[in-house]
């Protein structure tokens, strides 16, 4: 399975991009040439140079340093969103798919209700209700997005709940918790990995979008979406300011999506045989 995955050059490239980005984000304080908050108004809109690898922005701050520091909220907050939605979705999805009956009905009707709202508008509404703050954005996103996960995971669980090894476990009296953790979770892990990597891309876009709209990460803190927002103000005079953060978002989101695709291919038993 993993061998298949590592044979795919696209998958490897995506892994390197994601891994490299995470590395740069974690070690940003030791890599950056300048303080991301230090402004120098006399040196605004400077072209790339050795001192400023990606030039400076409208306040004369180092764009390269800000990009590296921006990885932290962008990537790691997305990770939090992804883990939160995944956790809630897996919990409710497996419960619904495994126990069926009335439990399933109740959870799935709630899911239906959640899915009937347009997700972005709901997030805006929740953030408006709770106040503009990145924490509220994360809570709102998890609150909206878990339903989608729960539905996907329920389907996967139902598929395995009727397998003979689960029936055997039940017939000799293994506990539900044992069956869920030892049989169900490993079986749906493949599906989960695909869902998670695809959803990571969505979460990054979402946080960047909300920061761009001014609802997420607030002004001086470097974040890719927020940087785009600031660059937007000077789009007429210095359009090149938008290129770096914009491109970074595209590449990272693309990498996660391709990673999801390659994972799905690698985990497909038919693909392994051919």
């Amino acid at each position: 399975m993993l061998k298949q995955f590592f044979k795919n050059p696209l998958a490897l490239m995506c892994l390197v991009i994601v891994g490299g980005t995470a590395f740069l984000g974690i070690f940003a304080p030791w890599i950056v040439p300048h303080d991301p908050y230090a402004n120098n108004i006399l040196n605004k809109f400077a072209s790339p140079s050795w001192a400023y690898p990606l030039g400076t922005d409208q306040l004369g701050r180092c764009v390269f340093s800000r990009m590296l520091y921006g990885i932290r909220p962008t990537l790691f907050l997305s990770l939090v969103v992804m883990l939160g939605t995944l956790g809630l979705g897996v919990l409710l999805g497996t419960i619904a798919g495994y126990f069926r009956g009335i439990v399933d009905e109740v959870i799935m009707r709630v899911v239906d209700i959640m899915l009937s709202f347009p997700s972005q508008i709901m997030i805006l509404a929740v953030v408006a209700l709770l106040g503009v703050d990145i924490r509220n954005v994360i809570i709102a996103t998890i609150f909206i997005k878990w339903a989608w996960y729960a539905r996907m995971i329920r389907t996967a669980t139902i598929k395995y709940a009727e397998m003979n090894f689960v029936l055997f476990s039940r017939s000799i009296g293994s506990g539900n918790l044992y069956i869920l953790t030892r049989h169900m979770l490993p079986c749906i892990a493949a599906e989960l990995a695909v869902l998670a990597s695809l959803d990571m891309g969505w979460a990054i876009l979402n946080i960047s979008t909300l920061s761009f709209l001014g609802l997420g990460v607030q002004a001086p803190v470097p974040e890719w979406g927020a940087m785009l927002n600031e660059a937007k103000n000077v789009m007429a005079s210095n359009p090149e300011q938008m290129i770096v953060p914009g491109l970074a978002v595209v590449v990272l989101v693309g990498a996660f999506n391709f990673l999801g695709d390659s994972l799905r291919d690698a985990l497909d038993p038919k693909a392994v045989r051919s």
Binding site: F168, I172, R182
Partner: peptide, 13 residues
């Protein structure tokens, strides 16, 4: 009481 199934491929994890 224990079970043994027909389809041995799906009867074990």
């Amino acid at each position: 009481m224990a079970l043994v199934f027909q389809d041995y491929t799906s009867s074990v994890n």
